[in-house]
């Protein structure tokens, strides 16, 4: 399997190198939304004497810088890609090879993240400096951030595949994926840090998986939660990963039987 991955990585890096500019543009596009929210919260905080709940302007800056980094590392677009692959018949040859199609997506995902991480860090450093971001994280937070962001990425990826698999039934997964993304927008910590969501929404966010993809790793990186809480949150992330892994096994097995090789 290591050899397969090495070969897939080489191929994918070559393919990605053809689209460097496009990658950078996508990355910048992904940063715009958090920056807008950051600017909005800065304005709100300014109007309320510098604070909203436990967050001041510098905390917001740290949170949205952390969230942008996590979003870059943990978001996956596979459900959109997958629909395209099914409609264009590109999935068929992959299904007929002795390698599960998910592995190509894993590699694509990781390569995309590798090619955008450096420019991303430069942009985020600039934003952090501009807004004077204050990170409260200790070295323990930084150590915990690594497993947390890996689990967040795994969870977003697996959940994305579960959503994508609905394409076996509908062939049009866009609507489902968009609905999913809208839910993530509210509950993953993009519109506001989870700690600032109104009571009931916060409870819902803690029960749903979305926050464990982005918000939780961002809060750990920012140092917004203490170390014991971080460990609990990471455990919950791990549970969600196991749940979505199991769910994917089931929906894939059933879905692939539905597959009619459309357009293939």
């Amino acid at each position: 399997m290591i050899d397969v991955y090495r070969a897939l990585f080489v191929g994918q890096i070559q393919a990605a190198s053809q689209y460097r500019v496009q990658s950078i543009l996508w990355m910048l596009f992904a940063v715009i939304r958090p920056v807008i929210f950051l600017a909005a919260w800065v304005a709100v905080a300014g109007a309320q004497g510098g604070r909203v709940g436990s967050y001041d302007v510098r905390d917001f800056a740290a949170y949205y810088v952390a969230l942008s980094l996590v979003a870059n590392l943990a978001t996956s677009w596979n459900s959109y890609e997958f629909e395209f692959e099914i409609r264009m018949g590109r999935l068929s040859p992959k299904l007929l090879r002795p390698l599960h199609p998910i592995h190509y997506a894993v590699v694509e995902n990781i390569v995309w993240k590798m090619t955008t991480i450096i420019p991303m860090l430069i942009v985020l450093s600039f934003i952090a400096a501009t807004f004077d971001a204050r990170f409260r994280s200790t070295s323990a937070h930084l150590a915990l951030f690594v497993p947390s962001v890996v689990l967040g990425a795994a969870l977003a990826f697996l959940a994305g595949w579960v959503v994508a698999t609905t394409a076996f039934w509908t062939t049009r997964v866009h609507a489902v994926a968009t609905l999913w993304d809208r839910a993530a927008f509210i509950f993953a910590g993009q519109i506001a840090p989870l700690a600032l969501l109104p009571g009931p929404l916060q409870t819902i966010a803690l029960v749903l998986p979305f926050g464990y993809m982005l918000g939780v790793p961002a809060e750990i990186l920012q140092g917004a939660v203490d170390v014991p809480t971080a460990i609990v949150l990471i455990s919950v992330q791990a549970v969600w990963v196991v749940i979505f892994y199991a769910l994917l096994q089931v929906v894939w097995r059933v879905g692939v039987r539905q597959y009619t090789g459309v357009g293939a």
């Binding site: 397969v4 070969a7 070559q14 590109r90 040859p93 090879r97």
Partner: peptide, 20 residues
């Protein structure tokens, strides 16, 4: 239908298939 990766030379796709 195509099963090759469009953006890379076929020789590289052959290597990937060799491993798969």
């Amino acid at each position: 239908r195509t099963q090759l990766v469009w953006d890379i030379p076929a020789a590289d796709s052959f290597r990937v298939l060799q491993e798969i």
